[in-house]
Write a protein that binds this DNA or RNA. Structure first.
Lengths: 189, 189
DNA sequence: GCCATTTGCCTAAAGGATTTAGGTATGGTC
DNA sequence: GACCATACCTAAATCCTTTAGGCAAATGGC
């Protein structure tokens, strides 16, 4: 019988595709086995557990978003950089909703430390370099930006802004305007 | 044999407690049956499905948060109201992490329409009455506030801000300051 | 208080997911 | 061509979901 050529890498990648197509909660070892036309137990040589598979997808998504972020920030500064980074998250979530949902998975501390999470924090800090903030206000601003990006994308993905005026794209643009204005006029502590 | 006195109401409530104690993804019809010391199938007279149970918990959480929001906003305006509403969400999530996670569940459109979701939008609009915004900017601001509240609480719950300086409470306070400043100086379109 | 009806909880059973243990066959290497 | 590692298999235990059908307890009319 011919072999399917499985590997952790391929399983995680296929899991990510499945997540985007059917939703992250449909990502299951069984479904993946069906997709490869292979018996379920066979996957357990490549993946420790169902949770391990999902974690792999989360790490992949974080990695991919960080790559996009680096590319988007190259050569940009100020509001231009802010908008570019913001759009990385929104676009990625739009194109890969399952992966994006995976990235929101709660990782245990050591996995999180080994993830691309740090790159994301660094990217946001890079954006803030175009504004005039000093510690600890800069960290507060990092957290604000992270909250807005994540919160907006999440609400939009959940359908919160659909089918109601004004268009979500307009709100997004105006929110970026607003954040830019806020960062340029950050209130005194 | 004595009856356990189950009802949809009690099941949802117990499910909410279970969610807070063990995590929303641990909320299962089986676990709930164990908690009531009753056979699993018995619950299906009160609850249509596992998903139905989870939806019930989500609706309960939305309801409870809206109640707290109404109470918090009574007699407040401006930044005072802004901070009060913001804290409703953060405090609720801190006290009831499982319920809060449930509230993030994606509801189908008609369930969402019948939920307390509308009350939440109205509360945020009420806060904005203390600032000088007109449509469509007001809607953009509603979406911004929703994003920040949800995004921050979610990241904090996921452990994003723990064990790192400055304290999350300080960031939260400064973010509210910043939002207040932003709403008072909303950039021109 | 008695009977009928409703309803609450039961047993039984089927289906699907997870996970482990141990077996067979395949592909590369000497 | 034999050997070895390993890719994939069968088998089996455990758990969760869900439906079907049954018995017993509560409820209400008389």
């Amino acid at each position: 019988m011919a072999r399917a050529g499985l590997s952790t890498e391929r399983l995680v990648r296929a899991g990510a595709e499945l997540a985007d197509e059917a939703g992250f909660d449909q990502v299951t070892v069984s479904a993946l086995a069906r997709r490869f036309d292979v018996k379920v137990a066979s996957l357990y040589s490549h993946v420790k557990s169902s949770q391990d598979l999902r974690t792999g997808i989360a790490l992949l998504a974080l990695e991919e978003m960080a790559d996009r972020g680096d590319a988007a920030l190259a050569g940009r500064a100020g509001k231009d950089a802010l908008a570019a980074l913001a759009n990385v998250y929104r676009d990625y979530a739009g194109e890969h909703p399952g992966r994006y949902a995976a990235a929101r998975l709660r990782l245990d501390p050591e996995t999180a430390a080994a993830s691309a999470g740090g790159r994301h924090a660094r990217m946001t800090r890079a954006v803030l370099r175009g504004y005039d903030l000093t510690e600890p206000e800069s960290t507060h601003a990092v957290r604000l930006l992270g909250s807005v990006f994540h919160g907006y994308v999440d609400l939009e993905l959940a359908g919160g802004f659909s089918h109601s005026e004004p268009d979500s794209r307009q709100s997004w643009a105006r929110i970026i305007d607003a954040l830019d204005a806020l960062l340029r006029n950050w209130p005194a502590a």
